[in-house]
Amino acid sequence: MSLSNHKLATTANQAYEITKTVREAVAASGVTEGLCVVFVPHTTAGLSISSFWDPKGLEDVHDDINRLVPTRIDFKHQFDTPQDAAGHVKSVLVGVSLTLIIVDGAPLLGHSQGIFFNEFDGPRQRQFFVKCHG
Results as ranks from 00 to 15, higher is better:
G30I: 06
G87W: 01
F52G: 13
R126K: 10
T11M: 07
A12G: 04
H77P: 02
T81Q: 04
F117L: 08
V38M: 00
Q127N: 13
A9V: 08
F117G: 03
L3H: 10
Q14T: 05
I49T: 14
Q14V: 00
D60N: 10
T71Y: 00
L47F: 01
I65M: 15
F116S: 01
F116Y: 14
E119I: 01
A15F: 00
H111P: 15
L100W: 08
A45W: 02
G30H: 06
Y16S: 00
I101L: 15
E17S: 09
I73L: 12
K20I: 09
T71F: 03
V31K: 05
G134A: 13
L109M: 07
L8H: 04
R72K: 15
Q113W: 06
D121M: 00
L108P: 01
G110E: 08
H133W: 12
H133Y: 12
A27G: 08
S91G: 11
L108T: 10
D104P: 05
F128Y: 15
L47A: 06
S50Y: 13
K131A: 15
G105L: 09
F129M: 14
F116C: 03
Q14I: 01
G134R: 10
D54P: 04
D60Y: 03
D60P: 00
L98P: 06
A12Y: 02
L108M: 12
T19L: 07
R124I: 04
G114P: 07
A86K: 00
A15D: 04
K90R: 15
D84G: 01
A27N: 09
L98I: 12
C132E: 07
C36W: 03
R126G: 01
K7S: 11
F120A: 00
V96Y: 03
D84V: 02
I101W: 06
L3E: 07
